[in-house]
């Protein structure tokens, strides 16, 4: 996948404790990676907010003591970000929140899904421990208003 033009794709994965205190670390990592892809300053700021919102949404339902994984895929002219955490409810986040509104406005494409795989604390479909992921794709030069 993604080898059509032969351009190398880099993956960067950052794992933090599922605690709000580490959000600033992820924002900094996001800005650094976006800068590598020559995003504009405004786009970098948008990405920082978007990743922060996705993480904050997931942290409110994260299993305490678990880890939040943020996986960045550096594509040609785009940055794809997947944020995942084992959750207490195994459900995708509500979309009628300020956080989702802001996230959707900032990232070009956003989606959320529940992992099919078994969580660390139970079998697939059990709810608790089930990993929920928010995926976003931000294209360079396709700014939010």
């Amino acid at each position: 996948m993604g080898q059509q033009n032969g351009a190398p794709q880099d993956f960067v994965e950052v794992r933090i404790p599922a605690e709000g205190a580490y959000l600033s670390v992820l924002r900094t990592a996001t800005a650094g990676l976006a800068a590598r892809l020559d995003f504009t300053l405004d786009e970098i700021e948008d990405l920082r907010i978007a990743v922060d919102e996705a993480c904050a949404i997931l942290l409110t339902k994260a299993v305490p003591g678990s880890g939040l994984t943020c996986r960045f895929e550096l594509r040609d002219g785009a940055l794809a970000v997947d944020v995942s955490v084992p959750t207490l409810d195994g459900k995708t986040p509500a979309r009628d929140t300020f956080a989702w509104t802001v996230l959707a406005a900032l990232a070009g494409q956003v989606d959320a899904y529940v992992s099919e795989a078994a969580g660390p604390d139970g079998p697939a479909g059990a709810g608790i421990g089930q990993t929920v992921t928010i995926s976003m794709l931000k294209q360079r030069g396709v700014g939010a208003p």
Partner: peptide, 9 residues
């Protein structure tokens, strides 16, 4: 320097 929806709330 930075505000998100949690701060906004």
């Amino acid at each position: 320097a930075f505000l998100d929806s949690m701060g906004l709330r």
